[in-house]
Amino acid sequence: MSEERPQLIVDGKRLDGRDFDELRPIKIEAGVLRRADGSCYLEMGRNKIIAAVYGPREVHPRHLQDPSRAVIRYRYNMAPFSVEERKRPGPDRRSIEISKVSREAFEPIIMKELFPRSGIDVFVEVLQADAGTRTACLNAASVALVDAGVAMKGIITAVAVAKVDGQLVLDPMKEEDNFGEADVPFAFLIRNSRIESIALLQMDGRMTVDEVKKGLQMAKRGAMQIYEMQRDAIMRKYHTEEVE
């Protein structure tokens, strides 16, 4: 990064004019792909994500099958055109890691025992990236899984908290992510409109214990707002079908 480090907080507001605990505008649409069992298109600020779920279906290659439960495969991928400098296509160290941690967030929530020997495939594609893509992808994948009719204990809602200029901020955008001191993505299991547990927690950078605690509270409030939007997207899909 050769760019000059900008001042990230001006007059108690962030670069895009948001408050510290304010989310970026979010748009969620469920069931956008015809051939997938479940799908979702999500915009979170300038992030644009499309998620598709296939299954439960037969697993190939055979040796990956588990005779007692379903296997879950999660593929996070960034399109070459999703970032300013063209990204080399295909999986790299970063996207393999994100795929793994995201899959592990979903694994205890999906009722795998109901579909022995089958597989559930989740594909999330980042079409345009603007920081916090893994949280946006988790939100999209969650809606797609519900849309596919997969049995789950609840739904996953994710949001990140960052520390910029010594201040905790919710849902960082690109500049805050690049020049901030820390970035902590959270994912929660939400059941019956209540946060039940943390499904994913990572940290890049340094924060004090108190800051993490404060950040968690902030993330929880943000996640509840996103949860309402996820829920609304699913409801809306079936409501519009009714009108047609």
Binding site: M111, V146, G149, K153, G154
Partner: peptide, 13 residues
């Protein structure tokens, strides 16, 4: 599904 004596939905429906 049942957890902790309460009944929750497990699918969309």
């Amino acid at each position: 599904y049942i957890e902790g004596g309460r009944v929750y939905a497990k699918i969309l429906g």
